[in-house]
Nucleic acid binder design. Structure first.
Lengths: 222, 222
DNA sequence: TGTCTTGTTATACCTTTGTTCAACAAGAAC
DNA sequence: GTTCTTGTTGAACAAAGGTATAACAAGACA
């Protein structure tokens, strides 16, 4: 295909088009991480190969080892980016909302935080293979395990704070950290079941189940 | 190592030990499936190679393609065996218990079925890589997806029946199928969280969360 | 003991994998 | 236009992958 293109270019008589473009390192790295992420969610760890990724990114094979220690190093970056996209940004958003909305009813903040887990942005089936692969990597790689622990802990803490705020405002005694942890487990479990068999539930049913678990302890939120 | 052994045998002066033993096909297949399962749970799909499996099983490389269509065919058999071990046998046991214990308090049957999910036999961290790999295979292979759907549906049905029996005996209105589905999701989610970060909960805490979810709707079971 | 069947081995084969590196050229600087 | 820097290419390489198959030998049978 490359040959065809360059032949056409030569026959055009004009200056031949550049065979490649130089990109700022940061931008090139981001491009490659995105392409690698697509490969991982498409074919799992078996689809995460130098050939596939370079083809997806439209670059030559040598670039992966130029920008990353190794293919495994790229996988770690894919983990970081995915984790940020799905968890860290979640936390930041919750923090921002709470800081901005001081004085607002805590029920609103909590309901929004709960509901956001079932928004199509998070609760979708496109990334099953991606996360199965990343979890396997977490189980194997101690560095990733530590990062995972830290991020999930932060998210659990955020959720627990919002739960505790509602419970306090309503004079209820609630084990907020435990409830937050169980809620997250339920969300992950529902998402997993949905991905493996989409006939067993709908995102709406999942959201209902999630609210039900919290509301059973702190009372109605909607 | 093989050389050393056979040399020793020769020097012993007696008849040399057989270089291999012939096994009945059914038994040999079972041995290979077990070895392959160990490889998968140890190293994930990357550890599922002809070399590793044959080394684990103590056989030569040619035998996999002799007994299975391909390495992927062996993976399907690993799936079947694991699924049977973790789900199908679960269902059979529940069925048997219910058939044998006609007239027994349904609370006992339900409590036992719930608790069995958190028994070390099921709720243990050794099989994370195994199940992550199998789930990835389910997502990819339509035949496995259908098998998965069927087996999980049977298990959900079993659980829902036991829940409905308790609810009926107590005059409570409960959406048993939905509750069963949410419970299974919670169990899977808790197990996954525990595997990825064992500091976040204990099997006892998981069991408590599981009972809590059911008991919130049908009343105390213990 | 000798023969036969067939489960098992071991090798050869080709493909795909990740990595390296010398040569190349895009694009900024002058 | 010319020079220089360096991002990028693409071929070469060894290692590891799955599969096919001819040779072997274990164990049953006579």
């Amino acid at each position: 295909m490359t040959d065809t293109l360059s032949n056409i270019d030569k026959k055009r008589g004009g200056k031949k088009a550049p065979r490649f473009s130089r990109e700022p390192p940061q931008q090139r790295r981001a491009m490659m991480i995105e392409a690698a992420t697509r490969c991982l969610s498409r074919g799992g760890i078996s689809g995460f190969t130098v050939d596939a990724i370079c083809r997806e990114a439209g670059i030559s094979r040598g670039l992966i080892n130029h920008y990353f220690d190794s293919l495994d190093g790229l996988l770690v970056e894919v983990y970081r980016a995915s984790m940020y996209k799905n968890v860290a940004s979640h936390i930041q958003e919750a923090k921002r909302r709470r800081a901005e909305n001081i004085g607002w009813p805590p029920e609103l903040a909590l309901a929004e935080l709960i509901g956001s887990n079932f928004a199509p942005r998070y609760f979708n089936g496109d990334n099953l293979l991606l996360w199965l692969s990343l979890w396997a990597e977490i189980a194997t790689n101690p560095l990733l395990k530590a990062a995972h622990r830290e991020l999930y802990q932060a998210y659990r803490g955020e959720l627990a704070e919002d739960i505790a705020a509602v419970a306090a405002a309503r004079g209820r005694i609630v084990d907020a950290p435990t409830l937050a942890r169980n809620f997250i487990a339920l969300v992950d479990g529902l998402w997993l079941e949905w991905c493996l068999d989409e006939t067993v539930l709908t995102p709406e049913a999942a959201e209902a189940a999630g609210f039900e678990m919290i509301e059973a302890q702190v009372g109605p939120l909607r």
